[in-house]
Write a protein that binds this DNA or RNA. Structure first.
Lengths: 263, 263
DNA sequence: GTTACAGGGG
DNA sequence: CCCCTGTAAC
């Protein structure tokens, strides 16, 4: 059975609903993780997504952040609150177990600037996501940590590594922290499958023509345990949505797993 | 020569530009009077309209009101300021002489409520428009007073005259004032041509499904001298724009004149 | 640039 | 309901 999981930072789910629905109708992921829904649960466009055959799990707040997980199959488990005050402080973390696989959807704090308290919050948040995973799972479990991780792991993952070195999203402390967490047993799926590909997932609105000039960052990831990596049939960035009118500044990452294959 | 004049309260020319351009491309009026452009002259989308072959005359202010006149032919005369402080106080009055015809474009104050000072301002504004016309022209001149006049002249011009009697836009003082001004020699062109037609030009956003249920008002007019009325080939409300997505709350009124016919 | 919000206005 | 003006955040 081929099983498709995707992540998409929509930058406002209400403002982007028509393009989100169109994209879902193209790709029909079994599981779709959304970030930056930017609305309270009461005004989340739940119905429109349910009409496409999804169960809709939302964790929103007013104006900022907000994550959601859409699943074609009913999850076996749902984690709305981790119990960790840092992870639960804003609407940035939502985990489900579906079809036997744990899917952890995060919207990692952007960090503002390396000298801002928000940067330490980002490092702490990453650290606590790592701890949360490592305390509950083993690297042999079927697990995907996905979402807007807001860290470009390597020089190849930003449009100008020399110029951007040290900026939020490409700061050595973030990269080290991410690497440290992944050393436990998480594979950067896109990079594993496409070792040399410049595949960005984010292009800043504020940089003129950033998408046309491909001045992007790879900030959205599929970080998976080896058993999931072995089952992966493909992993790709779909740049389609970013090229359309009034796009999100991010574009989706999609992974397809063959869940009938041997581990 | 058939000569088409139109009026359209666009409710924000920048927010409505694509639909405005589409409508112009359908109707190609020789003269188009706009109201509620809601922007300063520096940010008025002049180029897009010039690209359609129009000379663009704007009188805007920040955020509110704002009138413009687009002409295919260069006007012989332009009146940007009347010299009357009441008429010039906000961006509500713009007059041009084009193809020998005087076209006076007004966005008459809405009036807020009959007990609000804005209501007296509305009555005074109407009065001064009348005075301005009568001091400069004779009923034998070629003249059109058009725009969002914000008065429904008769019971047939509102969706529920009993319920709306006395409300702004259908208050006896406004109707009397408009009638008094028109008695000088102005013809309500749409009513002259279609004596029984319920032809609304405005449907309130705030009233649920007002357009679908046709709960409208006729507030936008073509008030013309007899020589122009004699030359009129047709006059109609184009409800098309109001039915499209993200419409203005008003829809255009169009008049076609045969300027080669005898008076 | 683009979203969200609040407040004024119709 | 929809526009505009601001502000804040990314």
């Amino acid at each position: 059975m081929l099983w498709k999981v995707a992540t998409f930072n929509v930058n406002g789910v209400r403002a982007r609903l028509d393009r989100l629905l169109a994209w879902i109708s193209e790709q029909h992921p079994h599981v779709l993780c959304l970030q930056e829904t930017k609305c309270q649960d009461a005004v989340f466009p739940r119905q429109a997504l349910e009409a496409l055959g999804y169960e809709v799990l939302v964790k929103g707040e007013k104006s900022f952040n907000g994550v959601a997980v859409l699943t074609q199959e009913t999850p076996e488990s749902v984690v709305m609150e981790t119990g960790d005050p840092l992870l639960d402080r804003e609407a940035r973390f939502l985990a489900v177990q579906v079809q036997g696989v744990w899917v952890i959807n995060t919207y990692v704090p952007q960090g503002r600037s390396p000298d801002d308290p928000a940067f330490q919050y980002k490092l702490d948040f990453l650290n606590q996501v790592g701890r949360w995973i490592q305390e509950r799972f083993s690297p042999q479990d079927l697990l995907i940590w996905t979402g807007d991780i807001n860290v470009a792991p390597e020089a190849i993952d930003v449009y100008d590594p020399k110029r951007l070195e040290g900026e939020v999203g490409f700061h050595p402390e973030e990269r080290a922290k991410l690497k440290e967490i992944m050393a436990w047993g998480l594979v950067d799926l896109l990079r594993r499958l496409h070792p040399q590909a410049k595949q960005f997932t984010f292009w800043d609105y504020r940089l003129p023509k950033s998408f046309d000039r491909n001045l992007g960052w790879r900030l959205d990831h599929m970080l998976v345990t080896e058993p999931m990596a072995h089952r992966c049939a493909e992993c790709f960035v779909d740049t389609g949505p970013r090229g359309q009118s009034k796009p999100s500044d991010h574009t989706p990452v999609v992974a397809v797993f063959d869940m009938s294959s041997l581990s």
